[in-house]
Computed example of a mutant assay.
Amino acid sequence: MAVVTGSDSGIGRAAAVALARSGYDVGITWHDDEPGAQTTAEEARAAGARAAVRHLDLSDVRSGAAVVVALNDALGGLEVLVNVAGTGASTPFLDQELDEWRHVLDVDLTGAFTCAQAAARLMVEAGVAGRIINVTSVHEHVPLRGSAAYCAAKGGLGLLTKVMALELAEHGITVNAVAPGEIATPMTGNEDVEPTRIERPGIPLGRPGDAREVAALVAHLASPDSGYTTGASFVVDGGMLLMAAEANRRL
């Protein structure tokens, strides 16, 4: 069974459906879009999987562990956790309010930590050589002006991924990060838009990504084929990070 947080839309939904098609039952969580989560569950069931849906608000950082345990109890046998749920804020550093800073870090970093710790404890207790996959961002690796809290949270989650990989390896549990660039999802304002029709001259591939392209990597990292892969961060950005040197040359 796989738990995918934030699976009511976007990358989370695509990941849950991809895992269902790979043979996993799926635990689905939502924050403010219960109908979206039910749609994800319907797609998972159409792929032959069982699905359970729970509400998750990671601004209450202790709730993450309880929801992971509840989904484990509902479906049994947790093998995979995918941390997708997240939020962001576009506020200049000098204007950043402490409450906003704390909210972003609670959801994107501390919430992911509590979910991962609960999942890992269940896996260790059951003797399962499981998989934990943290969806970060290209801004795990490079800064973004006006996004101090978001970059700090995603950078922190990237390094947490490596610590978890070191400590959980003795239990046969692998931990990896997936770092998307611009993906056509509700978070980027491109919900239900065909990515190939959106022009992005600053990205070498010339377009944003499709959530299913990220989900395919998640499904691979959850599969037996990735059993020797741990502590890595896989960038899925159409080559965007490769443009830093090119931008400098043009300037």
Rank of each mutant, 00 (worst) to 15 (best):
G36R: 08
A222H: 03
A37I: 01
T110Q: 02
V235H: 09
G48A: 05
G206I: 08
M164L: 15
S9T: 03
D210F: 12
A89R: 04
L217E: 04
S137L: 00
M240T: 14
L159Q: 12
D60H: 14
V175K: 15
D99F: 02
A152C: 10
A165M: 06
A126D: 05
A37L: 03
E43G: 00
C151Q: 02
M1E: 04
V138T: 06
A211R: 12
T40V: 03
G27M: 01
A20S: 03
E191P: 07
L168W: 14
G238A: 15
G231C: 15
I173P: 02
S233N: 04
S147K: 13
A41G: 00
Q117M: 01
V107T: 09
F113V: 03
L242W: 06
A153Y: 12
L144K: 10
T161W: 11
R21E: 04
E246G: 10
G202R: 10
A51Y: 09
R62Q: 12
G130D: 07
D25C: 01
N134F: 00
H171S: 13
G202I: 07
E42L: 03
A177H: 10
Y228S: 09
F113T: 01
S59Q: 10
R145W: 02
R121L: 06
T110H: 08
N248R: 15
S90V: 01
D210A: 13
E199S: 13
P204D: 07
G158W: 10
R212P: 07
S63Y: 03
S59I: 11
D32T: 07
V178T: 12
D8Y: 04
I28H: 04
D32K: 09
G64D: 06
V107Y: 08
P143L: 03
E170I: 10
Q38D: 02
E34C: 04
W101C: 00
F234L: 00
D210K: 11
I198W: 07
V82Q: 05
L166Y: 09
D106C: 01
G76Y: 01
L251T: 13
S22C: 05
R207K: 04
V142G: 01
G181Y: 07
M240D: 11
V4Y: 15
C151H: 03
A165R: 03
T136P: 00
V61L: 04
E34D: 07
T230E: 11
A118H: 02
G111E: 08
L71I: 08
A245M: 12
P208T: 09
G88D: 13
L109I: 11
G23K: 05
D192Y: 09
S223Y: 13
V175M: 15
T174M: 11
F93Q: 09
L75D: 03
N190T: 15
G156F: 13
S7D: 07
G172M: 06
D237E: 07
V163S: 15
R54L: 04
Q117F: 00
A74C: 06
V175I: 15
A215S: 07
S233Q: 06
A46T: 10
